[in-house]
């Protein structure tokens, strides 16, 4: 499988994503956004960073870049697509996934380790876990507060599209364990297809045993194996 890691101007987790995927034995390449998605792409990562300087809103500019038409077409044909951090913001801004990620309730950039409860294990992104598992991943964002509106949140839950919720070390989903004020402690969601997902926490920063305190992120990236 060849995974294209899309590099926009201002992306900065693209190399990390490639390294993490290669560690898992996945053939991964960075793709400059102006070059478009290669035909032989079997998976796509929208990496973290500060694409277009977060102008207007985080992810707003990249979401309207021409390469996103390729990403949407690939997603619609069943190619797995994962957006991480700024990639999650791009995913929601482009309508690939529901909701929006906006300014943290703290009004601060937050760079810390968080616990996540796996809400469902029957997706490509979570097949390595059991539902209810608690995993530990890093976050690093200023605009990670998941907002969706009451009605749409109800539909999101009814449709079972929440992948991860911020929780404490025991798996309890509490306000105290919510780092950014996200609605329902939501940290990651699915798109229309289960092969499309976004996550504010960084699985690629919790994959390489030599540099990461946790390797819990490997399970998410195994969707590409």
């Amino acid at each position: 499988m060849t995974v294209s890691v899309v590099q926009f101007g201002g992306s900065n987790c693209d190399r990390d994503a490639v390294r993490a995927l290669r560690h898992l034995g996945v053939d991964a390449e960075r793709v400059w956004h102006e070059d478009g998605i290669p035909d032989d792409t079997d998976g796509i990562v929208l990496p973290g960073g500060f694409s277009y300087g977060d102008y207007l809103r985080a992810g707003a500019m990249a979401a309207r870049a021409p390469i996103m038409a390729d990403v949407r077409a690939a997603a619609d044909s069943g190619v797995p697509v994962l957006g991480v951090c700024n990639g999650a913001q791009i995913g929601s801004e482009s309508g690939l996934t529901p909701g929006a990620f906006t300014t943290n309730a703290s009004a601060r950039f937050q760079c810390e380790s968080v616990h996540l409860r796996v809400e469902r294990a029957d997706t490509p992104w979570t097949a390595a876990y059991d539902a209810g598992d608690v995993i530990e991943l890093p976050i690093a964002h200023g605009e990670g507060r998941f907002e969706i509106g009451d009605d749409a949140y109800g539909k999101l839950v009814d449709d079972d599209r929440v992948l991860f919720r911020y929780c404490d070390a025991d798996g309890a989903v509490t306000d105290a364990a919510n780092p950014n004020g996200s609605t329902g402690n939501v940290a990651g969601v699915l798109g229309d297809r289960e092969t499309v997902a976004v996550s504010m926490p960084h699985p690629e920063r919790a994959t390489l045993p030599d540099v990461a305190a946790s390797t819990d992120g490997q399970g998410i990236l195994r969707a590409f194996v």
């Binding site: 809103r57 309207r64 929601s92 929006a100 906006t102 907002e147 509106g149 749409a152």
Partner: peptide, 9 residues
Amino acid sequence: ERLLANPTI
């Protein structure tokens, strides 16, 4: 509709 605002928020 298409860029300046995000209708979700």
